[in-house]
Design a protein around this nucleic acid. Structure first.
Length: 484
RNA sequence: AGCGGGAUAGAGGAGAGGUACCUCGGGAGGCUCAUAACCUCCAGACGCCGGUUCGAUUCCGGCUCCCGCAACCA
Protein backbone atom coordinates (compact mmCIF):
# COMPACT_ATOMS: atom_id res chain seq x y z
CA UNK A 1 0.00 0.00 0.00
CA UNK A 2 1.19 3.48 -0.78
CA UNK A 3 2.33 5.66 2.06
CA UNK A 4 0.01 8.61 2.59
CA UNK A 5 0.38 12.22 3.52
CA UNK A 6 -2.25 14.87 4.20
CA UNK A 7 -0.75 18.34 4.03
CA UNK A 8 -2.60 21.60 4.55
CA UNK A 9 -1.81 25.28 4.61
CA UNK A 10 -3.56 27.72 6.90
CA UNK A 11 -6.59 29.22 5.22
CA UNK A 12 -5.99 32.87 4.42
CA UNK A 13 -8.65 35.30 5.52
CA UNK A 14 -10.11 36.84 2.41
CA UNK A 15 -10.59 40.48 3.30
CA UNK A 16 -7.89 41.50 0.84
CA UNK A 17 -5.68 40.10 -1.88
CA UNK A 18 -2.92 37.63 -1.13
CA UNK A 19 0.40 39.01 0.00
CA UNK A 20 3.86 37.49 -0.11
CA UNK A 21 3.41 35.79 3.24
CA UNK A 22 0.51 33.76 1.94
CA UNK A 23 2.45 32.99 -1.18
CA UNK A 24 5.42 31.77 0.86
CA UNK A 25 3.23 29.25 2.63
CA UNK A 26 1.53 28.10 -0.57
CA UNK A 27 4.86 27.57 -2.29
CA UNK A 28 6.41 25.75 0.67
CA UNK A 29 3.38 23.50 0.81
CA UNK A 30 3.43 22.81 -2.90
CA UNK A 31 7.12 21.90 -2.83
CA UNK A 32 6.52 19.43 -0.02
CA UNK A 33 3.49 18.01 -1.80
CA UNK A 34 5.31 17.56 -5.09
CA UNK A 35 8.36 16.11 -3.37
CA UNK A 36 6.33 13.56 -1.45
CA UNK A 37 4.52 12.52 -4.59
CA UNK A 38 7.86 12.20 -6.34
CA UNK A 39 9.12 9.74 -3.73
CA UNK A 40 5.98 7.70 -4.21
CA UNK A 41 3.55 8.86 -1.55
CA UNK A 42 -0.10 9.53 -2.13
CA UNK A 43 -0.65 13.12 -1.01
CA UNK A 44 -3.81 15.06 -0.22
CA UNK A 45 -3.18 18.80 -0.55
CA UNK A 46 -5.63 21.16 1.13
CA UNK A 47 -5.72 24.90 0.71
CA UNK A 48 -8.60 27.37 0.68
CA UNK A 49 -10.19 30.48 2.06
CA UNK A 50 -11.53 31.58 5.44
CA UNK A 51 -14.57 33.71 4.71
CA UNK A 52 -16.66 34.49 7.79
CA UNK A 53 -16.31 37.09 10.49
CA UNK A 54 -16.47 40.70 11.32
CA UNK A 55 -13.83 42.12 9.04
CA UNK A 56 -15.39 40.68 5.91
CA UNK A 57 -18.85 41.63 7.04
CA UNK A 58 -17.77 45.20 7.64
CA UNK A 59 -15.87 45.57 4.42
CA UNK A 60 -18.83 44.23 2.51
CA UNK A 61 -21.13 46.67 4.28
CA UNK A 62 -18.85 49.57 3.44
CA UNK A 63 -18.73 48.49 -0.18
CA UNK A 64 -22.49 48.11 -0.22
CA UNK A 65 -22.33 44.46 -1.12
CA UNK A 66 -23.41 41.16 0.32
CA UNK A 67 -20.72 39.45 2.39
CA UNK A 68 -21.05 36.32 0.27
CA UNK A 69 -20.54 38.29 -2.91
CA UNK A 70 -17.53 39.95 -1.37
CA UNK A 71 -16.06 36.62 -0.24
CA UNK A 72 -16.74 35.11 -3.68
CA UNK A 73 -14.76 37.88 -5.28
CA UNK A 74 -11.64 37.32 -3.19
CA UNK A 75 -11.97 33.56 -3.09
CA UNK A 76 -11.90 33.51 -6.88
CA UNK A 77 -8.79 35.66 -6.88
CA UNK A 78 -7.05 33.37 -4.40
CA UNK A 79 -8.03 30.34 -6.39
CA UNK A 80 -6.65 31.90 -9.58
CA UNK A 81 -3.42 32.67 -7.76
CA UNK A 82 -2.92 28.96 -7.05
CA UNK A 83 -2.60 28.37 -10.78
CA UNK A 84 -0.48 31.45 -11.33
CA UNK A 85 1.97 30.04 -8.78
CA UNK A 86 2.12 26.71 -10.59
CA UNK A 87 0.71 24.81 -7.63
CA UNK A 88 -0.26 21.22 -8.30
CA UNK A 89 -3.94 22.09 -8.71
CA UNK A 90 -4.73 19.58 -11.43
CA UNK A 91 -4.15 16.61 -9.16
CA UNK A 92 -7.35 14.85 -8.05
CA UNK A 93 -6.12 15.10 -4.47
CA UNK A 94 -5.87 18.87 -4.61
CA UNK A 95 -8.66 20.41 -2.58
CA UNK A 96 -9.66 24.05 -2.42
CA UNK A 97 -12.00 24.52 0.52
CA UNK A 98 -14.11 27.57 1.30
CA UNK A 99 -15.53 27.99 4.77
CA UNK A 100 -18.79 29.08 3.19
CA UNK A 101 -19.14 25.70 1.46
CA UNK A 102 -22.33 23.95 2.50
CA UNK A 103 -20.46 20.86 3.58
CA UNK A 104 -18.03 22.79 5.72
CA UNK A 105 -20.85 24.66 7.46
CA UNK A 106 -22.52 21.39 8.40
CA UNK A 107 -19.23 19.93 9.59
CA UNK A 108 -18.49 22.97 11.75
CA UNK A 109 -21.93 22.68 13.34
CA UNK A 110 -21.47 18.99 14.00
CA UNK A 111 -18.07 19.72 15.50
CA UNK A 112 -19.71 22.28 17.79
CA UNK A 113 -22.25 19.67 18.91
CA UNK A 114 -19.50 17.21 19.76
CA UNK A 115 -17.65 19.74 21.89
CA UNK A 116 -20.95 20.67 23.50
CA UNK A 117 -21.75 17.03 24.25
CA UNK A 118 -18.34 16.71 25.83
CA UNK A 119 -19.38 19.49 28.19
CA UNK A 120 -16.83 21.95 26.87
CA UNK A 121 -19.13 24.72 25.70
CA UNK A 122 -20.87 27.06 28.10
CA UNK A 123 -22.48 30.45 27.96
CA UNK A 124 -21.33 33.36 30.00
CA UNK A 125 -21.60 37.10 30.13
CA UNK A 126 -18.57 38.60 28.55
CA UNK A 127 -17.55 42.14 29.19
CA UNK A 128 -16.23 44.24 26.38
CA UNK A 129 -15.06 47.81 26.41
CA UNK A 130 -16.79 49.98 23.88
CA UNK A 131 -16.16 53.47 22.58
CA UNK A 132 -19.41 55.15 21.55
CA UNK A 133 -17.39 57.68 19.55
CA UNK A 134 -15.89 55.02 17.32
CA UNK A 135 -18.80 52.61 17.72
CA UNK A 136 -16.17 49.96 18.20
CA UNK A 137 -14.97 47.45 20.73
CA UNK A 138 -11.69 48.43 22.30
CA UNK A 139 -9.10 46.24 23.92
CA UNK A 140 -7.07 47.41 26.89
CA UNK A 141 -4.01 47.75 24.72
CA UNK A 142 -5.83 50.22 22.52
CA UNK A 143 -6.80 52.47 25.40
CA UNK A 144 -4.70 55.30 26.72
CA UNK A 145 -5.29 56.11 30.36
CA UNK A 146 -8.51 54.12 30.26
CA UNK A 147 -9.90 56.20 27.42
CA UNK A 148 -10.09 55.92 23.68
CA UNK A 149 -7.24 58.01 22.25
CA UNK A 150 -9.53 59.22 19.47
CA UNK A 151 -12.31 60.33 21.82
CA UNK A 152 -10.66 61.26 25.12
CA UNK A 153 -13.67 63.31 26.16
CA UNK A 154 -15.98 60.27 26.19
CA UNK A 155 -16.12 57.60 28.85
CA UNK A 156 -15.48 54.05 27.73
CA UNK A 157 -18.63 51.98 28.14
CA UNK A 158 -18.56 48.45 29.38
CA UNK A 159 -21.04 46.26 27.58
CA UNK A 160 -22.06 42.84 28.72
CA UNK A 161 -22.60 40.39 25.93
CA UNK A 162 -23.50 36.77 26.42
CA UNK A 163 -21.32 34.48 24.34
CA UNK A 164 -20.43 30.84 24.25
CA UNK A 165 -17.05 29.86 25.57
CA UNK A 166 -14.84 26.88 24.96
CA UNK A 167 -13.25 25.16 27.95
CA UNK A 168 -9.69 25.61 26.76
CA UNK A 169 -8.41 25.55 30.34
CA UNK A 170 -9.56 21.95 30.74
CA UNK A 171 -6.97 20.78 28.20
CA UNK A 172 -3.79 22.17 29.67
CA UNK A 173 -2.46 18.82 30.85
CA UNK A 174 -3.50 16.99 27.70
CA UNK A 175 -1.78 19.59 25.55
CA UNK A 176 1.42 19.41 27.56
CA UNK A 177 1.39 15.65 27.06
CA UNK A 178 0.90 16.15 23.36
CA UNK A 179 4.02 18.35 23.33
CA UNK A 180 6.04 15.48 24.77
CA UNK A 181 6.19 14.33 21.19
CA UNK A 182 9.19 16.47 20.41
CA UNK A 183 8.36 16.72 16.73
CA UNK A 184 4.79 17.83 17.18
CA UNK A 185 5.76 21.41 16.46
CA UNK A 186 8.67 22.12 14.11
CA UNK A 187 11.10 23.85 14.58
CA UNK A 188 12.01 22.95 18.17
CA UNK A 189 12.11 26.57 19.28
CA UNK A 190 8.44 26.97 18.48
CA UNK A 191 7.56 23.85 20.42
CA UNK A 192 9.30 25.35 23.43
CA UNK A 193 7.39 28.58 22.94
CA UNK A 194 3.99 26.92 22.88
CA UNK A 195 4.91 24.70 25.82
CA UNK A 196 5.76 27.74 27.87
CA UNK A 197 2.56 29.39 26.87
CA UNK A 198 0.35 26.45 27.77
CA UNK A 199 2.28 25.78 30.99
CA UNK A 200 1.59 29.37 31.99
CA UNK A 201 -2.14 28.67 32.21
CA UNK A 202 -5.01 28.82 29.75
CA UNK A 203 -8.10 30.95 29.66
CA UNK A 204 -11.29 29.77 28.03
CA UNK A 205 -11.97 31.68 24.86
CA UNK A 206 -15.18 32.92 23.36
CA UNK A 207 -16.40 31.05 20.32
CA UNK A 208 -19.55 32.92 19.33
CA UNK A 209 -20.87 36.37 18.55
CA UNK A 210 -24.28 37.95 18.89
CA UNK A 211 -25.99 37.61 15.57
CA UNK A 212 -27.74 40.96 15.99
CA UNK A 213 -24.34 42.67 16.03
CA UNK A 214 -22.49 40.52 13.56
CA UNK A 215 -24.54 38.10 11.49
CA UNK A 216 -21.82 36.88 9.11
CA UNK A 217 -21.00 33.51 10.59
CA UNK A 218 -22.14 29.93 10.86
CA UNK A 219 -25.30 29.64 13.00
CA UNK A 220 -24.71 28.11 16.41
CA UNK A 221 -26.68 24.86 16.63
CA UNK A 222 -29.72 25.35 18.82
CA UNK A 223 -29.34 29.09 19.34
CA UNK A 224 -30.69 31.44 16.69
CA UNK A 225 -29.22 34.49 18.39
CA UNK A 226 -25.58 33.48 18.01
CA UNK A 227 -23.15 32.75 15.23
CA UNK A 228 -19.79 31.02 15.60
CA UNK A 229 -16.72 33.09 16.08
CA UNK A 230 -14.65 32.82 12.93
CA UNK A 231 -11.73 30.91 14.45
CA UNK A 232 -13.88 28.11 15.73
CA UNK A 233 -15.45 27.71 12.32
CA UNK A 234 -12.28 28.08 10.28
CA UNK A 235 -10.14 25.59 12.18
CA UNK A 236 -12.57 22.78 11.50
CA UNK A 237 -11.80 23.04 7.79
CA UNK A 238 -8.85 20.70 8.26
CA UNK A 239 -11.24 17.86 8.98
CA UNK A 240 -14.20 18.92 6.85
CA UNK A 241 -11.83 19.02 3.87
CA UNK A 242 -11.38 15.26 4.08
CA UNK A 243 -15.02 14.36 4.44
CA UNK A 244 -15.58 14.63 8.18
CA UNK A 245 -18.04 13.73 9.64
CA UNK A 246 -20.06 11.66 7.18
CA UNK A 247 -17.34 10.15 5.00
CA UNK A 248 -15.56 8.14 7.66
CA UNK A 249 -13.58 6.13 5.18
CA UNK A 250 -12.05 9.17 3.57
CA UNK A 251 -11.40 10.77 6.91
CA UNK A 252 -9.69 7.68 8.29
CA UNK A 253 -7.62 7.40 5.17
CA UNK A 254 -6.05 10.83 5.46
CA UNK A 255 -6.12 11.96 9.09
CA UNK A 256 -3.93 13.09 10.89
CA UNK A 257 -2.76 16.16 9.05
CA UNK A 258 0.59 17.89 8.66
CA UNK A 259 -0.09 21.61 8.88
CA UNK A 260 1.88 24.60 7.70
CA UNK A 261 1.33 27.86 9.54
CA UNK A 262 2.96 31.22 10.16
CA UNK A 263 4.48 32.04 13.52
CA UNK A 264 1.51 34.25 14.32
CA UNK A 265 -0.67 31.14 14.15
CA UNK A 266 1.33 29.07 16.60
CA UNK A 267 -1.26 29.27 19.36
CA UNK A 268 -4.32 28.78 17.25
CA UNK A 269 -2.95 25.76 15.42
CA UNK A 270 -0.86 24.00 18.02
CA UNK A 271 -2.90 24.76 21.15
CA UNK A 272 -6.48 25.95 20.53
CA UNK A 273 -7.19 23.69 17.59
CA UNK A 274 -5.62 20.69 19.30
CA UNK A 275 -7.74 21.24 22.39
CA UNK A 276 -10.82 21.48 20.19
CA UNK A 277 -9.94 18.18 18.53
CA UNK A 278 -9.43 16.49 21.89
CA UNK A 279 -12.78 17.81 23.01
CA UNK A 280 -14.52 16.41 19.94
CA UNK A 281 -12.85 13.08 20.46
CA UNK A 282 -10.63 13.30 17.40
CA UNK A 283 -6.96 12.42 17.29
CA UNK A 284 -4.74 15.55 17.25
CA UNK A 285 -2.95 16.82 14.16
CA UNK A 286 0.19 14.97 13.17
CA UNK A 287 2.54 17.89 13.00
CA UNK A 288 2.55 21.67 12.89
CA UNK A 289 5.33 23.29 10.88
CA UNK A 290 5.84 26.94 11.68
CA UNK A 291 7.44 29.35 9.22
CA UNK A 292 8.51 32.96 9.65
CA UNK A 293 7.42 36.15 7.99
CA UNK A 294 8.62 37.89 4.89
CA UNK A 295 10.12 41.24 5.71
CA UNK A 296 11.16 43.93 3.31
CA UNK A 297 14.50 45.53 4.07
CA UNK A 298 14.28 44.01 7.51
CA UNK A 299 10.97 45.61 8.31
CA UNK A 300 7.51 44.22 8.50
CA UNK A 301 5.69 44.83 5.25
CA UNK A 302 2.96 47.36 5.75
CA UNK A 303 0.95 49.70 3.66
CA UNK A 304 1.95 52.72 5.71
CA UNK A 305 5.64 52.01 5.12
CA UNK A 306 4.96 51.53 1.43
CA UNK A 307 7.16 48.44 1.25
CA UNK A 308 4.51 45.91 0.34
CA UNK A 309 5.50 43.67 -2.54
CA UNK A 310 2.65 42.45 -4.71
CA UNK A 311 3.26 38.82 -5.66
CA UNK A 312 1.28 39.18 -8.87
CA UNK A 313 3.56 41.98 -10.04
CA UNK A 314 6.61 39.79 -9.41
CA UNK A 315 5.05 36.94 -11.36
CA UNK A 316 4.22 39.35 -14.14
CA UNK A 317 7.84 40.51 -14.44
CA UNK A 318 9.80 37.36 -13.63
CA UNK A 319 7.40 34.45 -13.78
CA UNK A 320 6.10 32.11 -11.12
CA UNK A 321 9.08 29.79 -11.36
CA UNK A 322 11.45 32.57 -10.38
CA UNK A 323 9.28 33.56 -7.44
CA UNK A 324 9.09 29.94 -6.30
CA UNK A 325 12.86 29.75 -6.54
CA UNK A 326 13.41 32.79 -4.39
CA UNK A 327 10.94 31.76 -1.71
CA UNK A 328 12.37 28.27 -1.57
CA UNK A 329 16.05 29.09 -1.52
CA UNK A 330 16.54 32.64 -0.32
CA UNK A 331 14.00 32.48 2.50
CA UNK A 332 14.86 30.11 5.34
CA UNK A 333 11.90 27.83 5.97
CA UNK A 334 11.60 28.50 9.71
CA UNK A 335 12.85 32.05 10.22
CA UNK A 336 11.93 35.40 8.82
CA UNK A 337 13.22 36.07 5.34
CA UNK A 338 13.76 39.30 3.53
CA UNK A 339 12.38 40.24 0.16
CA UNK A 340 13.17 43.34 -1.83
CA UNK A 341 12.95 43.69 -5.58
CA UNK A 342 16.64 44.51 -5.61
CA UNK A 343 17.60 41.26 -3.89
CA UNK A 344 15.16 39.33 -5.97
CA UNK A 345 16.65 40.57 -9.22
CA UNK A 346 20.17 39.91 -8.03
CA UNK A 347 19.33 36.37 -7.08
CA UNK A 348 17.44 35.85 -10.31
CA UNK A 349 20.39 36.95 -12.42
CA UNK A 350 23.00 35.04 -10.45
CA UNK A 351 21.21 31.73 -10.01
CA UNK A 352 18.58 31.46 -12.69
CA UNK A 353 19.96 33.41 -15.65
CA UNK A 354 23.72 32.89 -15.16
CA UNK A 355 23.34 29.64 -13.26
CA UNK A 356 20.64 27.26 -14.33
CA UNK A 357 19.57 28.99 -17.55
CA UNK A 358 23.04 29.53 -18.95
CA UNK A 359 24.18 26.03 -18.02
CA UNK A 360 21.23 24.51 -19.83
CA UNK A 361 21.93 26.58 -22.94
CA UNK A 362 25.59 25.64 -23.13
CA UNK A 363 25.02 21.94 -22.58
CA UNK A 364 22.14 21.67 -25.04
CA UNK A 365 24.07 23.59 -27.66
CA UNK A 366 27.01 21.18 -27.54
CA UNK A 367 24.61 18.27 -27.39
CA UNK A 368 23.02 19.21 -30.68
CA UNK A 369 26.12 20.53 -32.45
CA UNK A 370 28.41 17.58 -31.75
CA UNK A 371 25.91 14.89 -32.73
CA UNK A 372 25.98 13.26 -29.34
CA UNK A 373 23.89 10.15 -28.89
CA UNK A 374 21.22 10.27 -26.23
CA UNK A 375 22.51 8.59 -23.05
CA UNK A 376 19.16 6.81 -22.80
CA UNK A 377 20.06 4.56 -19.89
CA UNK A 378 20.83 7.63 -17.78
CA UNK A 379 17.54 9.35 -18.46
CA UNK A 380 15.34 7.39 -16.09
CA UNK A 381 11.95 8.62 -14.94
CA UNK A 382 12.12 10.97 -11.98
CA UNK A 383 10.11 8.74 -9.66
CA UNK A 384 12.57 5.93 -10.23
CA UNK A 385 15.68 8.06 -10.04
CA UNK A 386 14.85 10.01 -6.90
CA UNK A 387 15.48 6.99 -4.68
CA UNK A 388 19.11 6.67 -5.74
CA UNK A 389 22.01 7.29 -3.40
CA UNK A 390 22.91 10.39 -5.37
CA UNK A 391 19.83 12.18 -4.01
CA UNK A 392 20.20 11.05 -0.39
CA UNK A 393 21.22 14.44 1.00
CA UNK A 394 18.46 16.10 -1.00
CA UNK A 395 15.85 13.68 0.33
CA UNK A 396 17.05 13.99 3.92
CA UNK A 397 16.68 17.72 3.75
CA UNK A 398 13.20 17.64 2.31
CA UNK A 399 12.13 14.94 4.76
CA UNK A 400 13.07 17.45 7.46
CA UNK A 401 11.30 20.32 5.66
CA UNK A 402 14.68 21.94 4.97
CA UNK A 403 13.55 23.32 1.65
CA UNK A 404 16.39 25.80 1.24
CA UNK A 405 19.08 23.22 1.90
CA UNK A 406 17.56 20.86 -0.64
CA UNK A 407 17.68 23.70 -3.16
CA UNK A 408 21.31 24.33 -2.24
CA UNK A 409 22.02 20.74 -3.24
CA UNK A 410 20.66 21.44 -6.73
CA UNK A 411 22.76 24.55 -7.14
CA UNK A 412 25.84 22.70 -6.01
CA UNK A 413 25.22 20.30 -8.90
CA UNK A 414 24.83 23.24 -11.26
CA UNK A 415 28.15 24.67 -10.12
CA UNK A 416 29.85 21.33 -10.58
CA UNK A 417 28.51 20.96 -14.09
CA UNK A 418 29.84 24.41 -15.03
CA UNK A 419 33.20 23.44 -13.61
CA UNK A 420 33.17 20.12 -15.43
CA UNK A 421 32.77 21.93 -18.74
CA UNK A 422 35.67 24.19 -17.88
CA UNK A 423 37.91 21.30 -16.86
CA UNK A 424 37.16 18.88 -19.70
CA UNK A 425 36.71 21.52 -22.44
CA UNK A 426 34.57 19.44 -24.82
CA UNK A 427 34.30 22.45 -27.13
CA UNK A 428 38.02 22.39 -27.95
CA UNK A 429 38.40 18.64 -27.57
CA UNK A 430 35.77 18.22 -30.25
CA UNK A 431 38.24 19.51 -32.84
CA UNK A 432 40.88 16.88 -32.09
CA UNK A 433 39.09 14.00 -30.39
CA UNK A 434 35.37 14.21 -31.13
CA UNK A 435 34.54 10.88 -29.47
CA UNK A 436 36.11 12.05 -26.22
CA UNK A 437 34.16 15.27 -26.44
CA UNK A 438 30.91 13.40 -27.01
CA UNK A 439 31.50 11.31 -23.88
CA UNK A 440 31.86 14.42 -21.81
CA UNK A 441 28.74 15.94 -23.27
CA UNK A 442 26.78 12.74 -22.65
CA UNK A 443 27.94 12.90 -19.05
CA UNK A 444 26.76 16.50 -18.85
CA UNK A 445 23.38 15.58 -20.28
CA UNK A 446 23.01 12.94 -17.58
CA UNK A 447 23.93 15.55 -14.95
CA UNK A 448 21.45 18.02 -16.35
CA UNK A 449 18.77 15.35 -16.28
CA UNK A 450 19.46 14.67 -12.60
CA UNK A 451 19.28 18.39 -11.93
CA UNK A 452 15.90 18.53 -13.62
CA UNK A 453 14.66 15.62 -11.50
CA UNK A 454 15.64 17.38 -8.27
CA UNK A 455 14.13 20.57 -9.62
CA UNK A 456 10.66 19.12 -10.14
CA UNK A 457 9.18 19.96 -6.73
CA UNK A 458 10.67 23.43 -6.79
CA UNK A 459 10.20 24.56 -10.38
CA UNK A 460 7.95 22.06 -12.12
CA UNK A 461 7.62 23.94 -15.40
CA UNK A 462 11.36 24.53 -15.68
CA UNK A 463 12.11 20.89 -14.93
CA UNK A 464 9.74 19.91 -17.70
CA UNK A 465 11.36 22.34 -20.16
CA UNK A 466 14.81 20.95 -19.44
CA UNK A 467 13.64 17.39 -19.94
CA UNK A 468 11.95 18.38 -23.18
CA UNK A 469 15.14 20.05 -24.37
CA UNK A 470 17.12 16.89 -23.66
CA UNK A 471 14.56 14.66 -25.38
CA UNK A 472 14.27 16.85 -28.45
CA UNK A 473 17.88 18.13 -28.50
CA UNK A 474 16.37 21.55 -28.86
CA UNK A 475 15.95 24.35 -26.34
CA UNK A 476 12.84 26.19 -27.48
CA UNK A 477 13.83 29.39 -25.71
CA UNK A 478 16.39 30.42 -23.08
CA UNK A 479 15.04 29.49 -19.66
CA UNK A 480 15.76 32.71 -17.79
CA UNK A 481 17.04 35.79 -19.54
CA UNK A 482 19.14 38.27 -17.63
CA UNK A 483 17.30 41.31 -16.33
CA UNK A 484 19.05 44.63 -16.25
C1' A B 1 8.78 44.08 33.35
C1' G B 2 8.27 39.13 30.86
C1' C B 3 9.15 35.57 26.61
C1' G B 4 11.70 34.50 22.00
C1' G B 5 15.31 35.43 18.03
C1' G B 6 19.70 37.83 16.31
C1' A B 7 24.86 40.45 16.08
C1' U B 8 30.13 36.64 10.79
C1' A B 9 34.42 40.60 4.95
C1' G B 10 31.56 46.81 1.53
C1' A B 11 26.27 44.36 1.34
C1' G B 12 23.26 39.94 2.20
C1' G B 13 23.45 35.02 4.08
C1' A B 14 25.46 29.80 5.77
C1' G B 15 28.63 27.32 9.35
C1' A B 16 31.44 24.48 12.93
C1' G B 17 35.55 23.10 19.66
C1' G B 18 41.30 23.16 15.91
C1' U B 19 42.91 25.86 7.40
C1' A B 20 35.88 30.24 8.55
C1' C B 21 32.06 29.02 3.54
C1' C B 22 28.51 31.00 -0.31
C1' U B 23 26.21 35.00 -3.33
C1' C B 24 26.62 40.11 -4.97
C1' G B 25 30.18 43.97 -5.28
C1' G B 26 36.01 45.41 -6.00
C1' G B 27 41.00 43.90 -8.42
C1' A B 28 43.93 40.57 -11.87
C1' G B 29 43.95 36.69 -15.38
C1' G B 30 41.84 32.59 -18.49
C1' C B 31 38.25 30.34 -21.93
C1' U B 32 34.95 30.85 -26.28
C1' C B 33 30.20 25.71 -25.77
C1' A B 34 26.86 29.53 -23.41
C1' U B 35 22.22 34.37 -21.75
C1' A B 36 28.85 40.43 -21.61
C1' A B 37 27.67 34.23 -19.55
C1' C B 38 31.56 30.34 -17.40
C1' C B 39 36.49 29.09 -14.85
C1' U B 40 41.01 30.54 -11.82
C1' C B 41 43.52 33.71 -8.44
C1' C B 42 43.78 38.20 -5.05
C1' A B 43 42.05 41.90 -1.14
C1' G B 44 38.49 41.90 2.92
C1' A B 45 34.94 39.58 8.61
C1' C B 46 33.31 36.11 13.43
C1' G B 47 29.66 43.15 18.57
C1' C B 48 32.19 43.87 23.77
C1' C B 49 34.12 41.69 28.60
C1' G B 50 35.04 37.47 31.43
C1' G B 51 35.05 31.91 32.17
C1' U B 52 35.70 26.51 30.67
C1' U B 53 39.69 24.37 27.42
C1' C B 54 46.02 22.58 25.10
C1' G B 55 42.90 25.58 21.85
C1' A B 56 36.45 29.33 21.20
C1' U B 57 34.25 32.93 16.38
C1' U B 58 31.72 28.06 17.89
C1' C B 59 30.25 26.01 24.80
C1' C B 60 28.97 28.95 29.59
C1' G B 61 28.08 33.80 32.22
C1' G B 62 27.65 39.09 31.91
C1' C B 63 27.22 43.63 28.84
C1' U B 64 25.80 46.64 24.57
C1' C B 65 22.79 47.08 20.39
C1' C B 66 18.86 45.33 16.95
C1' C B 67 14.26 42.70 15.87
C1' G B 68 9.77 40.10 16.99
C1' C B 69 5.74 38.41 20.47
C1' A B 70 2.74 40.00 24.57
C1' A B 71 -4.60 36.04 23.25
C1' C B 72 -6.69 35.48 18.56
C1' C B 73 -2.68 40.00 12.05
C1' A B 74 0.87 34.52 7.10
Amino acid sequence: MKEKLYLTTTLPYVNADAHLGHVLEFVQADILVRYNRLIGKEVFFNIGTDEHGQKIWKKALEAGREPQEFADFYAARFRALMDSLHLATDDPNFNFIRTTDEHHIKAAQEFWRRCDTAGDIYKKAYKIKYCTGCELEKTDSELVGGKCPLHPNLEIEVIDEENYFFRFSKYQTALLELYDNTNFVVPAGRLKEIKNFVAGGLQDFSISRLKSKMPWGIPVPGDDDQVMYVWFDALTNYISAIGWPEDEKKFEKWWPVVQLAGKDNLRQQSAMWQAMLLSAGIEPSGRIIIHGFITSDGQKMSKSLGNVVDPLAVIEDYGAEALRYYLAREVTPFEDGDFTLEKFKQSYNANLANGLGNLTSRIIKMYQSYEVEEPTAELKPATEMIGEEFFREYRENLDNYEIGKAADFIWTQIGEADLYIQNTKPFSLYKTAPEEARKHVAYLIASLWRISVALEPFMPETAEKIQQAIKTKELAAPLFLRKE
